[in-house]
Amino acid sequence: MDMGSFLHQFVQQLINGVSLGSIYALIALGYTMIYGIIKLINFAHGDIYMLGAYFGFVATTMLGLSFLPALVFAMAAAAVAGIVIERVAYRPMRNAPRIAILITAIGVSFFLEYGMILIATPQPRTFPAVFDATVYNVAGLVINSQQIVILGSALVLMAALTYIVNHTKAGKAMRAVSFDMDAAQLMGINIDKVISMTFALGSSLAAAAGVLVSIYYNSIDPLMGMMPGMKAFVAAVLGGIGIIPGAMLGGIIMGVVEAMVSGFFSSTFRDAAAFGILILILLYKPSGLLGKNIREKV
């Protein structure tokens, strides 16, 4: 490979990677927010992403909605699902050992996956093309209009989330709870409400990611959330779990690394590369890229 075509390939993969990474970032945000608040690795989060895709499917095929209304519908429905899951499965266990809640989350994940198989059969379904996919050729680089939509939507959503967390009363409450739940409670913050809201926000972001991915790949199935969910979790840890900009950074890094490995080596090693990067970073910075290394006080 000469330098020119190498560079060309590199930029092309960078484009693909950033758009894929923005999806990971959207899912990772939910992981990180939920972890930040209740220290739970919500293994069911990837399945919320799947749910979102199915809600989007229902909205476009059965309700005949166009892209934006369908996206909003999926996000709202997933938010409700997130609140219900937290109510039913996680809230009763708030004082249980953390590992017990983790197992519950695995249980919820199985329930969503196989419940969906029961309802919608395990067969993949074709997600309708909600808008025409135009392919632009810019200086020999292939850019898909869907990639632009994905990236654009992801950026808007991330900006909205950042605004909510940093500049609204609700966001301030969220940050307070994540900093110190007991103290926040003593200051008159309704913990239950804040946790519900966190689940709603996180779930709606995952659902948005689900819809965007389905539009891109045209296909959805009940187990589609397993791998992206896991990758997004890796992205969240990579950036420093519990830290919102960390999730965005981690997501983008994951996406770019995967695209590069697929582009330059072999797509079979894509997943291994993602995990490999994570481990290397953790060995160097044990609490993630943006994480603070807190030493236990003796």
Partner: peptide, 10 residues
Amino acid sequence: RMVIYSITLI
């Protein structure tokens, strides 16, 4: 199977 399994677990 898996639905019942997961509910049992929870």
